[in-house]
Nucleic acid binder design. Structure first.
Lengths: 121, 121
DNA sequence: CCGGATCCTATCCGATACTG
DNA sequence: CAGTATCGGATAGGATCCGG
C-alpha cells in the first residue's frame, strides 16, 4: 500500500509512529542536518546545535546510534577526539526532513497569520 | 534558499522548528490522517484516533484550529453536532507526512535490526 | 575534550468524573 | 453528543557538577 493507512501510526508498534517519535524530539533532526556535510566532533555539534546541553546531545546521539542513523568513532589520542558520522540510513532521513522544511518555509506565513487572527477572535 | 539552513530549526522562532513541534506531538498527525477523506465529528475522531481522551483531543483540535489547519463547525441541533474539516493548509500537510510515512515503511526494517544488533553489543 | 551522574522542572498525556 | 474540570503520572529536557 502506498498511502497512509488508518492503523498506521495509531499503533505504538507501527513504523510511522516510531519515526514520528524520533523526528518529534527536539534534537535528532538538527543533528541530521548538522551532519549532512560530513563527520563532526562532539563539541562541533554542540556549537552547531545551538543551546543543547552535553547530556541531551549525548542521549540523542546514543539513540541515533542504536537506530543505525549515526556511527561513533573514538580516536585514541590526547586530547581525545570523537567523531560522529551519518550512516547511509541517516543520510536518507534527509528526504523526509527536507519535505517538512519545504512545507514549513512555504506555509509558515499562513500559520502565523491564522494564529494572529485567532487572537482577535 | 531551497535547502535546509543551519540557522533553520535551531531557533525556536523558525518555521521548521514550529512545524516540527506540531508534527512531534502525539495526535496532530493522526488527526490530519483521519480527516483526509472529509469532515468528521468529534466522536468519530475519538474512535479513529485510537485511545485519545476527549481532553487531549480537544486540546489538539483547538491548537490546529488556531494554526489554521482545521475548521470547526457547530450545528445547532439536538443532539448537538460538531464537525471538523481540514483546511487546504491542513490538507497540504499530508505531503510531508506522506514523505515520513514512506521513509518509515521503507526503512523500519533497518532501524529495527540496528536496534537488535545494539542489544548484543 | 568528551560525556557520565545527579537533581530538578516543565510539559504532555491519561483517567475519571461531571455539564450544557 | 461534545466537551470541561481536576488530578496525577510519566518523561523529555535543562542545570550543574564531576570523572576519564
Amino acid at each position: 500500500m502506498e498511502t497512509i493507512e488508518q492503523g498506521d501510526a495509531f499503533d505504538p508498534n507501527c513504523p510511522t509512529r516510531m519515526v514520528l517519535d524520533r523526528i518529534g524530539d527536539r534534537w535528532t533532526v538538527l543533528v541530521v542536518i548538522s551532519l549532512r556535510n560530513g563527520p563532526r566532533r562532539f563539541t562541533e555539534l554542540r556549537r552547531k546545535v545551538n543551546g543543547v546541553t552535553p547530556k541531551v546531545l549525548t542521549q540523542t546521539l546514543r539513540a541515533m546510534e542504536r537506530d543505525g542513523l549515526v556511527t561513533r568513532e573514538v580516536f585514541a589520542e590526547v586530547p581525545p577526539r570523537v567523531e560522529y558520522t551519518l550512516t547511509p540510513l541517516g543520510m536518507s532521513l534527509q528526504t523526509p526532513i527536507q519535505a517538512i522544511a519545504d512545507w514549513a518555509e512555504a506555509n509558515v506565513g499562513k500559520v502565523m497569520s491564522a494564529r494572529e487572527a485567532s487572537l482577535q477572535a
